[in-house]
């Protein structure tokens, strides 16, 4: 494998089966230093499995993983003090009080930052004497986040951190992530179903579908270059000529919507010249739209 310290998060040809199904299929992904990447996909696309392999909780069938410059799982123990992991469900010992959990974790991290921990405690407003099993969903996740951030990790990995949260807690949690990472330039990977969060916070987005990486692109260029072209068809029954670079198309009544990845005026001209259309307009898209169209397009092509 080439220099493992090149990317803080790097996976190469990662594969994992569960029984007969191929949950992660030849996945390769490299995330540059200091970037925040949103990892999105449908349920069962393989996001949690990929993340668990990255942090050394699951053994891959084949492929290579390097996190914070350490190979996983062979150099797993050295890697752990350099990363922070927030699981999809809190896994702190239920009987431990918040303060006990902090003292426990503190004993093992050489680079524990007590000031940072105190600041996060104030920001998250957690009750020190509360037992972990009595914490609400949001508070439990905040505790996991606090424990993950307090040792100033280089890499932060979050697995669907805000699923099932009420809106206020979600905002507090994300503020915690944003505040901590923006001052320290950490590399962050977070998987999420809330595409609005990914669109707001992520520098780039990686879309996983049926275990394969379908797209990895900076969010702003993706949203700049992906457009929906909406045309009104004169004649619904005649065959339609689609422009090159089409990702997905949909017809509803007389309205024909084409999603293109690298928009150019030529595509509009192509549609106009090769089809009988009454009206054409170009629409901007949100990440939600892009994701759905790409997934539908991939499914259709499969």
């Amino acid at each position: 494998m080439s220099d493992v310290t090149e990317f803080p998060i790097m996976v190469k040809n990662l594969t994992r089966r569960f029984g007969k199904s191929l949950v992660v299929n030849d996945l390769s992904l490299s995330i540059p230093f200091g970037k925040m990447v949103g990892f999105i996909g449908l349920n069962g696309a393989g996001k949690t499995t990929t993340i668990r392999m990255m942090v050394g909780l699951l053994k891959p069938d084949s492929g290579e993983i390097a996190i914070a410059g350490y190979r996983v799982p062979s150099q797993r123990d050295s890697m752990k003090s350099h990363i922070g992991y927030v699981p999809d469900r809190p896994n702190v010992y239920g009987w431990m009080r918040v303060q006990e959990a902090i003292d426990f974790a503190r004993a093992f991290y050489p680079n524990w930052n007590p000031d940072h921990c105190e600041r996060l405690m104030k920001m998250f407003d957690l009750d020190r004497s509360q037992r972990a099993k009595n914490l609400s969903k949001g508070q439990g996740a905040k505790l996991s986040l606090l424990l993950a951030l307090s040792h100033d990790p280089e890499v932060l990995i979050l697995d669907e951190p805000t699923s099932g949260f009420d809106p206020l807690v979600r905002e507090e949690f994300l503020q915690g992530v944003l505040a901590a990472t923006s001052e320290r330039r950490q590399t962050v990977l977070f998987s999420s179903h809330t595409l609005a969060d990914v669109e707001r916070l992520a520098d780039s987005v990686a879309i996983l579908h049926e275990g394969r990486l379908v797209l990895h692109s900076p969010v702003d260029s993706l949203l700049d270059c992906t457009k929906r072209i909406r045309a009104v068809l004169e004649d619904v029954s005649s065959a339609r000529q689609t422009p090159p670079g089409m990702v997905f198309q949909q017809v509803s009544g007389r309205e024909w919507t084409i999603t293109v990845e690298k928009f150019s005026r030529d595509q509009v001209e192509f549609i106009r010249s090769h089809n009988r259309v009454l009206q054409i307009e170009v629409l901007d898209v949100s990440l939600d739209d892009v994701f759905k169209d790409i997934i539908r397009g991939t499914r259709g092509a499969a």
Binding site: D77, S78, K80, G94
Partner: peptide
């Protein structure tokens, strides 16, 4: 049983 083994596993402690 209660997944706290994972919490322990993620700490930088040797097995």
């Amino acid at each position: 049983r209660d997944r706290s083994a994972e919490f322990l596993a993620m700490m930088p402690i040797s097995r």
